[in-house]
Simulated assay, not measured.
Amino acid sequence: MKRARDASDAQRVTIDVGGTKVSTTVSTILRSSYLAGMVDLSAWDSDAEHSAQIFLDRDPETFALLLRLMRQYPHVAGLVPHEPGLLASLLAEADFFGYEPLLSHVKARAYFNAREARQDYKARSEFTTVGRLDGESFADRAVRVSAGEQRLKEHIAEIDAKFNSKDESYGSDRFDAVYGTVGDALASGVLPKYYLEPKPPVPPPTKKIVQLMPVDTPCWYLVGDAYEPRFGECGDFVPMHPMSQCITQPGLVRRVACHALVEDQHGTRWMEPMLHLTTKDLEEWMGTQPGDGQGLIFGATLDDCSLKKHTGGVARRTLLASDWFEKMLVPVLCEECGIMETNLWAHVLVAAEPPAEYGFSGGRELGQEAAL
């Protein structure tokens, strides 16, 4: 379908760029905020054959590239040169002349190439204050924290959606906020580099086991929720009971297989226990697969039922305590039961026999015992 002809298409303008003359129309140069201010549009009212003339002390070759893109409006993607030096000159020219369609496209693409969505997530503290407010009851605090957590989830989902769709308006605005002007970005090297190629993603944190040490006597890894009523009258915000009392009623118990010397990607080392997984761990993992509620065997046929996703191997039945905590425990407690990760306590107990598991009460209200 042909584009409807605009009256300004017939209003011709001659531009002398450093001695090289080019002709175009008013409708084209109006796409540049700089050039739009150099044309007297009322001149055509008295003389329909009027032809404006403009002199520009600019590089004719670079301007010709910019004018080509202005003529192709609104099409920009696919027409931008990929030679770094040429693109840098074109962006400087577009910035000078104020050709926003090109600048917005380039800034948005560069921003999404240079950043990861998680870098735009706001801090949790912006959605909820975890500490107790003056005169606030435990129940009111729980409602406030829960509402804040929900707002945080919605915020994260919104940012993820903008990154997935490569929202140009968002990307362009965020580029300005993070990298400054086009001139700043050209000076720092952000442009044209990240328009032309994505920044390598930040590798996830790594942990490697340097050495394993056996346990001399039976050890148990205990986890509980600090706000469980059995650990203290949490509704009145008094201190927890002594840990010696709390560890007799843990939420979950896992046997310590051995101790591991662990090193992260920065070379930092620490000691932590490795845990024996239980049949309960396997059952819970199988129960989270598609088909949950349709029978354990049927559910197990839909996805890997070997715990390999968590342990890294089908025959492995020990896991670093931190990995078990993050991969298996927290998703269930925090996402399904609404228990905050920061409220969980952990303890290594040396004892011949383990204490009984008491589970977790999801609502943490007095008298409620909904075991996990």
Results as ranks from 00 to 15, higher is better:
residue 283 E to P: 00
residue 294 Q to P: 00
residue 321 A to F: 12
residue 182 V to F: 08
residue 181 T to I: 05
residue 338 G to F: 04
residue 328 M to D: 02
residue 293 G to K: 12
residue 185 A to H: 03
residue 353 E to G: 07
residue 69 L to R: 11
residue 193 K to T: 04
residue 134 D to H: 14
residue 98 G to R: 09
residue 74 P to N: 05
residue 359 G to S: 08
residue 228 E to C: 07
residue 152 L to H: 08
residue 4 A to L: 13
residue 74 P to M: 07
residue 234 C to E: 02
residue 318 T to E: 15
residue 357 E to G: 05
residue 197 E to W: 00
residue 355 P to S: 04
residue 333 L to C: 13
residue 267 G to E: 08
residue 299 G to C: 14
residue 130 V to H: 02
residue 32 S to T: 09
residue 139 A to W: 00
residue 136 E to M: 14
residue 162 K to C: 00
residue 146 S to I: 01
residue 15 I to V: 14
residue 296 L to Y: 10
residue 368 Q to N: 12
residue 115 R to I: 01
residue 13 V to T: 10
residue 135 G to D: 01
residue 135 G to I: 14
residue 328 M to P: 03
residue 270 W to T: 07
residue 97 F to D: 00
residue 372 L to M: 09
residue 102 L to N: 02
residue 13 V to C: 07
residue 22 V to W: 10
residue 175 F to I: 04
residue 293 G to N: 03
residue 202 V to T: 13
residue 77 A to Y: 04
residue 323 D to Q: 15
residue 237 F to I: 08
residue 37 G to S: 09
residue 156 I to Q: 09
residue 230 R to T: 03
residue 91 L to H: 04
residue 108 A to E: 00
residue 322 S to Q: 11
residue 33 S to C: 10
residue 162 K to F: 05
residue 174 R to Y: 01
residue 361 S to E: 09
residue 173 D to I: 03
residue 115 R to V: 06
residue 324 W to E: 05
residue 350 V to L: 07
residue 345 W to T: 08
residue 104 S to T: 12
residue 37 G to C: 12
residue 345 W to A: 12
residue 207 K to I: 10
residue 119 Q to E: 15
residue 312 G to S: 12
residue 276 H to V: 10
residue 181 T to R: 07
residue 273 P to K: 08
residue 228 E to A: 15
residue 10 A to K: 15
residue 297 I to F: 06
residue 315 A to L: 09
residue 290 P to F: 02
residue 289 Q to A: 15
residue 152 L to T: 03
residue 203 P to L: 14
residue 328 M to T: 04
residue 351 A to R: 05
residue 279 T to L: 14
residue 20 T to D: 13
residue 323 D to S: 15
residue 274 M to Q: 15
residue 273 P to V: 04
residue 2 K to Q: 12
residue 362 G to H: 10
residue 146 S to W: 12
residue 332 V to N: 02
residue 31 R to N: 03
residue 172 S to P: 05
residue 363 G to C: 08
residue 272 E to C: 10
residue 78 G to Y: 04
residue 23 S to H: 03
residue 69 L to W: 05
residue 339 I to T: 06
residue 299 G to I: 00
residue 214 P to H: 05
residue 182 V to C: 05
residue 3 R to F: 01
residue 18 G to M: 04
residue 88 A to T: 06
residue 49 E to V: 08
residue 35 L to F: 09
residue 126 E to Y: 10
residue 123 A to L: 14
residue 343 N to L: 13
residue 197 E to I: 05
residue 219 C to T: 03
residue 162 K to A: 02
residue 189 G to R: 06
residue 32 S to F: 11
residue 237 F to L: 03
residue 26 V to P: 00
residue 255 R to W: 00
residue 133 L to S: 12
residue 48 A to D: 12
residue 316 R to I: 13
residue 364 R to T: 02
residue 298 F to E: 06
residue 242 P to S: 11
residue 258 C to W: 15
residue 96 F to C: 10
residue 335 E to W: 10
residue 190 V to K: 03
residue 185 A to R: 03
residue 358 Y to P: 01
residue 85 G to F: 00
residue 356 A to V: 11
residue 190 V to Q: 07
residue 338 G to Y: 05
residue 191 L to Y: 07
